[in-house]
């Protein structure tokens, strides 16, 4: 059972500001969806290994070489606010 408090907590973790109406809707919908997913709990998966990757890939590495850097203007080109060569953000606290 997902409570309104759960929804508020999860929204905070995901940095989403929800309106009262949205909290209402998401509480209901998450309950619907997760309620449907309860079926999973019926399955006994005690001895089953989780699959995080479908391919048996392992040990993929790159060599320690330095490549081309981006021109700084490219790095900053899309940023919403800048101060000379820095990304600018509102105060932290």
């Amino acid at each position: 059972m997902v409570t309104r408090e759960d929804v508020e907590h999860v929204a905070l973790l995901g940095r989403l500001e929800l309106t009262e109406e949205e909290k209402e809707i998401y509480t209901r919908q998450l309950n619907d969806i997760l309620g449907h997913f309860q079926a999973l709990q019926r399955l006994d998966t005690g001895n089953i290994q989780p699959t995080a990757h479908v391919l048996p890939l392992k040990n993929v590495y790159r060599e320690d070489w330095v490549g081309q850097h981006m021109p700084r203007e490219d790095a900053l080109a899309n940023c919403p606010d800048r101060d000379e060569n820095y990304f600018k953000v509102p105060k932290i606290v």
Partner: peptide, 22 residues
């Protein structure tokens, strides 16, 4: 190391801001 952990940008200390990036 010469380059960063997940890309080939330099790890060199200092440098003009936002130049050691990709």
């Amino acid at each position: 190391t010469r380059s960063k952990i997940f890309c080939d940008s330099t790890t060199e200390f200092g440098g003009e801001p936002n130049t050691h990036v990709c």
